[in-house]
Design a protein around this nucleic acid. Structure first.
Lengths: 207, 207
DNA sequence: ACAGGTTCAGACCAATCGGTCAAATCATTT
DNA sequence: AAATGATTTGACCGATTGGTCTGAACCTGT
């Protein structure tokens, strides 16, 4: 029945969530199937009924993230206005990093290791980045923004927005925010937006 | 004799290097003592003659990094000129990231995991950051730079400079730089300097 | 009520884990 | 040359690893 199918999909979803959380914490090699099973509320044998191997689950989790990001973050979004486009991208990206830090951390960990598993999905990533580069170059040619290295500009936006997920523990400590309460998203977004807009010779919104 | 002592220190240094490399790749849990020993050119038993446990070696590696960084990176360096201070910090930081990416990666990995091992050394880090915040606030008060969130400004510099170590694989792919050749340090430094100087309302050097 | 497949759990596998140990080897001092 | 300490070695420990297998429990359509 489809009640059975729904239950199965719930379990698979729980496994994927657990995988992202656990792999983000200790990496591929550092995460045991035991720990994965426990985090998903299953026994080890039960987990292996749903997945075929740890490596495959790892790759599936990464693939899931890439697919999700591809649909959420596209620099050339909506408006044609450079300031609005950049500001909106940064806001969305930082909010995502603060709300789902494990996702960003898993991705970062994989890239830091050399991204061998991820390399299969790099084609789409490069394509998206080059599309955005085109948009930015258009802005420069039209004199709408100060000249910028389009690739590095994007990488730096990525660096800053990801940072608050990867370095959450450090940010907490430096900003004096205890474990329970969330980081001040507005403050972080404002500073990041100001920075990248000023880099482009654009006027940041009054605060 | 001291030839014996030198030999012992050579081995300990080889172990530390191997530890940084291996821990950076697979994290604490994901790195076996076997792999550590092999990377240092020793047998497992021999390794345990020099270290007492994997955890302790891990902590030692982290402590080494913090100590090293404390002496290399001090934002309030040399000159009193904001532009020069910022530009020099960024250059030093990015060169270090490109030359010793494993170091940055190990640190990032530990922080991403929650920095439980590192937390002991966070006092000194916070102190250094707050000193720098004082310097920056002084610049703002004197009207020498555009108002900035001093803490977030520093965190963003950290984010960008670290990024080219942590995301080296991605940067290689996007910039089209094959595995053997180094990334273009000048290009990366220039873009980063422009960004942070413009954020402060300062004029970047002509290129 | 029963047959059919789906899902589950416990025992189990070889391999590897971090770490120890005693015996052997090496280098150095006397 | 004998004695002494510093190193190295391979065998070994119990625990845990990723993964399998079997048989029981559980649904579900008839």
């Amino acid at each position: 029945m489809n009640l059975v199918r729904r239950r199965r999909e719930e379990i698979r979803r729980a496994i994927l969530d657990a995988a992202i959380r656990e792999f983000a914490k200790n990496g591929l090699a550092g995460t045991s199937t035991q720990a994965l099973a426990a985090a998903a509320g299953l026994t080890k044998a039960q987990l292996h009924y749903y997945i075929s191997s740890k490596e495959e689950l790892y790759e599936e989790a990464l693939h899931f993230i890439v697919r999700e990001w591809r649909t959420i973050f596209f620099v050339s979004a909506g408006s044609d206005d450079p300031a609005e486009t950049i500001a909106s991208y940064i806001e969305r990206k930082i909010r995502h990093a603060l709300d789902h830090p494990e996702v960003s951390r898993l991705f970062a960990n994989e890239v830091a290791r050399g991204a061998y598993v991820l390399s299969r999905h790099w084609g789409e990533l490069k394509q998206a980045v080059e599309e955005a580069s085109g948009v930015i170059e258009g802005w420069i040619a039209a004199g709408r923004i100060r000249p910028v290295d389009p690739l590095l500009f994007q990488m730096n936006m990525w660096a800053v927005t990801q940072h608050y997920a990867e370095y959450e523990a450090q940010a907490r400590h430096l900003l004096g925010v205890p474990e329970g309460t969330p980081l001040d998203a507005e403050r972080i977004i404002a500073e990041a937006q100001d920075m990248f807009l000023l880099r482009c010779g654009l006027t940041p919104p009054a605060r």
